[in-house]
Computed example of a mutant assay.
Amino acid sequence: MSDDRPTSRNPGKKSFLERLGDAFTGEPRDKDELLAIVQEAHQNEIVDDDSLRIMQGAINVSDLHVRDIMIPRSQMVSLEHDESIKEWTAKVVSSGHSRFPVLGESNDEVIGVLLAKDLLSLGLTADFNEEEMQKAVGSIVRDVTFVPEAKRVNVLLRDFRQNRNHMAIVVDEYRGISGLVTIEDVLEEIVGEIEDEHDDETIDNIASNGNGGFIVQALTPIDDFNDHFNTQFSDEEFDTIGGVIMHNFGRVPKRDDTIELDDLLIRVTTADNRRVKAFEIKTETTD
């Protein structure tokens, strides 16, 4: 039957099944064409909303580099090699993370990675003196993996799986520390973040809260934020207002933490252990 079709026919006008077959046989097709096939499958109710989101994420992840998804250095929770065990334990408990870079003599020297479970396995309630405990902790610091900012995310995921590694330190072209990236960061680009049931609803980047203030999503582009609030935050270092605000905090803030910038009172309204997701913004004239 295919012999009866004109050979000059536009591939975009092939039937859905024909294009689906083409996508998985022969030479690789254009990514846009593959995305169109997946979207048509969703329209034809062959795949549901969740499957569509995952398939789109899996296709698009090859366009991302580590720099696009990493946790910036300013937001890293790190341990220093000369800190006491009590200081380490306090950071582990307060942050809720499971893995921590261990810094050496300088902030650009990462000597290893500490897993929280390894620290707990030492039995911190044991009757060790500080020196003995410090030696014991040194023995459980694991080797660290370094990856360049330009590494593709799909390649990073493959390396994580092959090496059974869950975290890597990101370095720039001069081997300076840019941030860190985890396997969770990669997977979230594919399956999306686990949120509340209303995630399917469209959320405005900047929306009135009904009390004279605004709820602003952390991913709001800086230009949009500046236009709305008549501010002049630079977009040279960060693309979103979340990056600017977290940089000024100097850490990953928790819910209800506040900061004042350019006559704006900013309160964190939604956050997890790794990043902020939304803020409440009030101006000086807000009651």
Rank of each mutant, 00 (worst) to 15 (best):
R274M: 09
E195K: 10
K86M: 09
D235H: 11
E130D: 15
T182G: 03
H166K: 12
M55H: 06
L120I: 14
T25E: 12
A41Y: 07
Q39T: 04
T240V: 06
K135M: 10
P72G: 06
D143L: 08
N209Q: 07
I215H: 05
I281G: 03
R164F: 03
Q232N: 15
K13R: 14
D235E: 13
W88I: 03
N273M: 11
V61A: 10
A207G: 01
P253A: 01
L124M: 10
V102Q: 11
R19Q: 13
S208C: 00
L156A: 01
T89A: 14
D263Q: 13
D30M: 09
N273A: 15
D235Q: 11
G21A: 13
S121F: 03
E40I: 09
N107A: 14
E83N: 13
T220N: 07
D256E: 11
D287A: 12
K277V: 10
L114F: 07
N44P: 00
T286G: 01
V61E: 08
L122A: 01
V77I: 14
F100S: 07
D22F: 05
L264Y: 03
P221L: 01
N165P: 02
R161W: 02
I111F: 01
A126F: 08
G12Q: 11
Q134K: 14
A126V: 08
A278W: 07
G213H: 07
H81W: 12
I177M: 13
M55D: 06
L103E: 07
D4I: 10
N226H: 10
H228V: 04
N248W: 02
